[in-house]
Computed example of a mutant assay.
Amino acid sequence: MSPGSESPILIIGTERSGSNLLRLVLNAHSRITIPHPPHFMRFLAPVAHRYGDLAVEGNRRRLVEDALALLERHPHPWPHPVDADRVVDEAKPTLFGVVAAIYDQHRAAERKARWGCKSTFMVNHVDDVLADYPNARFIWLVRDPCDVASSAKRSVFGYCHPYRMARLWREQQERGRTALAKWGPEVVHLLKYEDLVSDTEREVARLCDFLGERSETAMLEPHRSPAAQETAALSRSWRHVGEPISTGRVGHHVRGLSESERLLVDKVTAPVKVSLGYRIDPRSEFQPDPSRFDVALRSALLRLRVESRSIREDRNCARRLRRDLYVRLLRCVYFNPGSGRSPGGSHPDRAWCERGIASRSGR
């Protein structure tokens, strides 16, 4: 194996791009484990500065406690417990150092050589990861933004409104492109969803070459794994990972988006979309932008629809809502000037935060 073969693997890009599929493809490898992500960096990075110097054990411990509280409420439970004391002792004094120590315990429990993270929001933290782990490898997963928006429109994960999802896609692909230009193809591997599902064997082989691993047959049929079946059963938004890999979702926007929505996505994403080899409708240039009021109202209506369906159909709906509530309360505490929170200080509002979460989650 190459010198970097024991390095972490991070899937970056935009949600609804096939990252759950890619996670399970990689997780099927005998040396790689990638649990479903609690999105530690996404939720904790905005408040990380409030923990103070993480070289101080007390500050690091508070961060570890909050990270593990997120993991406890994660809508896709991890199969192994995490020892907080070990994380505090073993973590590098950075936010990603804490995240890596948590993932490494999972790796050890799974008895595999490498761990990975499929939180696509890590596209915002490429430099932070490489500062701690220079041998880290990134898979930049890209999908046609119209299909991304079509999928997100019916999912509780991500923006429901195609205009908002298109803006997010453009921003995150620009970050991915910057990372590839800065660190090169030895560190950042560009993978298109359409290629992965249409020529799986070739793309998996290329992916394994990039990671310094041997391709394994099990990676071509990830739907057969217990991990895939568990994920598919938890949420309607993840149901397709329990099916064989196919091209059936390529071009889904033809049915999932109206013509005006598709033209709007093309307009918002046009320069980046073309640079990645996707076609745009030339009429999109003349598609008017929606007003803020229209976007807000339509977003609320779409969100109401997907939340209602999630309540009826998703086994993990209560856990997801409990997690989301915890994130909001946590940020309220850390951003509230009157909370009494200071770097290295006590947290007088923590009990209130926990009580609020418990009362709203039925605990």
Rank of each mutant, 00 (worst) to 15 (best):
2 S>D: 13
3 P>L: 12
5 S>V: 14
8 P>A: 12
9 I>A: 03
10 L>R: 00
12 I>C: 03
12 I>A: 06
15 E>C: 02
21 L>P: 02
25 V>T: 08
26 L>G: 02
36 H>T: 06
36 H>S: 12
39 H>I: 01
40 F>S: 01
40 F>R: 02
42 R>Y: 15
42 R>W: 14
43 F>E: 15
47 V>G: 01
52 G>E: 10
53 D>S: 09
53 D>C: 11
54 L>R: 03
55 A>N: 07
56 V>D: 15
63 L>H: 05
66 D>Q: 11
67 A>I: 09
70 L>A: 10
86 R>Y: 03
92 K>C: 04
94 T>S: 15
94 T>H: 04
94 T>Q: 07
98 V>H: 00
98 V>Y: 01
99 V>W: 09
100 A>G: 02
101 A>G: 03
101 A>K: 03
102 I>D: 01
108 A>H: 13
110 E>P: 00
116 G>A: 04
117 C>M: 03
118 K>T: 10
118 K>R: 11
121 F>S: 04
125 H>D: 09
128 D>I: 07
132 D>I: 02
141 L>I: 03
143 R>E: 11
143 R>Q: 08
147 D>S: 10
149 A>V: 03
150 S>R: 01
150 S>I: 05
150 S>W: 04
152 A>F: 08
153 K>R: 15
153 K>S: 13
154 R>D: 10
157 F>Q: 11
159 Y>P: 05
159 Y>V: 00
160 C>H: 14
161 H>E: 14
162 P>F: 08
162 P>H: 10
172 Q>I: 00
173 Q>T: 10
174 E>F: 08
174 E>L: 15
176 G>N: 12
178 T>Y: 09
179 A>I: 11
179 A>M: 07
179 A>V: 11
183 W>V: 09
186 E>A: 13
188 V>Q: 05
190 L>F: 02
192 K>M: 12
198 S>K: 11
200 T>S: 07
201 E>S: 13
204 V>Y: 03
205 A>T: 15
207 L>D: 07
207 L>Y: 06
209 D>W: 03
211 L>A: 13
213 E>V: 14
214 R>F: 12
216 E>G: 07
220 L>Q: 07
225 S>T: 15
226 P>D: 13
228 A>G: 06
229 Q>V: 07
231 T>Q: 08
235 S>Q: 04
238 W>C: 12
240 H>F: 11
244 P>M: 06
245 I>D: 01
250 V>Q: 00
251 G>H: 06
255 R>F: 09
255 R>W: 05
256 G>C: 06
261 E>Q: 15
267 K>R: 14
270 A>W: 08
278 Y>M: 09
280 I>D: 04
282 P>G: 09
284 S>D: 10
287 Q>M: 13
291 S>P: 04
293 F>P: 00
296 A>H: 11
298 R>N: 09
303 R>G: 06
304 L>R: 15
307 E>C: 04
309 R>H: 12
309 R>A: 13
315 R>W: 04
319 R>E: 15
321 L>M: 12
322 R>P: 03
324 D>L: 15
325 L>Q: 06
327 V>A: 05
328 R>P: 00
328 R>H: 11
329 L>S: 05
332 C>T: 12
333 V>I: 15
333 V>P: 01
335 F>M: 08
340 G>F: 11
341 R>E: 10
356 G>S: 10
356 G>K: 07
358 A>Y: 01
358 A>C: 04
359 S>C: 07
361 S>Q: 08
362 G>H: 07
363 R>A: 11
